[in-house]
Amino acid sequence: MSFALETIGVSMHFGGICASNNVSLQVQKGARHALIGPNGAGKTTLINLLTGVLRPSAGQILLEGRDITALAAHRRVGLGLVRTFQINQLFGELTPLETIGLAVSERMGAGGDWWRVAGSRGAVDRQIVEILERFHLVDVMQERTAILPYGKQRLLEIALAIACRPQVLLLDEPAAGVPEEERHEILATVAALPRDVTVLFIEHDMDLVFSFSDRISVLVNGALFTEGSPDEVSRDERVKAVYLGEDEVDD
């Protein structure tokens, strides 16, 4: 059986820094797989490698058993591998409506249409509506994205990924920077994803990690440190040491 997503001995060097060190990670189909580790452990770098933003210095990346190591970033999206960013990457000058419209059009093969007015495909418009409603973005859909409150921008960041209809979704600290009382709105949308969508997510909030994940990989200094079920990882003294050594984790 092939994994939804798999890396084989993936490494990445930035000058002298080894941000990914021979990482072999397997993510099961339909998993809720957490990727944790201290700051600078190389979590975001791994996502960048998986999505084609960076090319690994060594190793292979497989999606549903298919080698995608050399595939361009946008083609991976076409295969269902979609991500969100730790720091919002949005189109400040466009509206949420246009932003979601871009993703939906692209997925439905209408993104390159050059002789058609935007908005003139009913099928695209209906799916845009569906996403806007699901993420409570209808009331701000015509605002410039740059002036939206941070919480809304964060929702849009995630809505944009969902609009690509991912098979494998990579979430890089989805609730980062969002105030406590707005977090549940974001997490609820992630929890409501269909079970057959595979989710690999990075998160620093350990309560969240343990409640949401069914598998946890721990990354330290670019290398896979350990891996297991939430129970196993929470009992692992070495993980505690790594975390307690550098982070203010409460137990």
Partner: peptide, 15 residues
């Protein structure tokens, strides 16, 4: 416009 605004994200939604 999306590419001009943020090429990284444009590629990340399949453009």
């Amino acid at each position: 416009r999306a590419v001009q605004g943020n090429a990284l994200r444009a590629a990340a939604i399949g453009i």
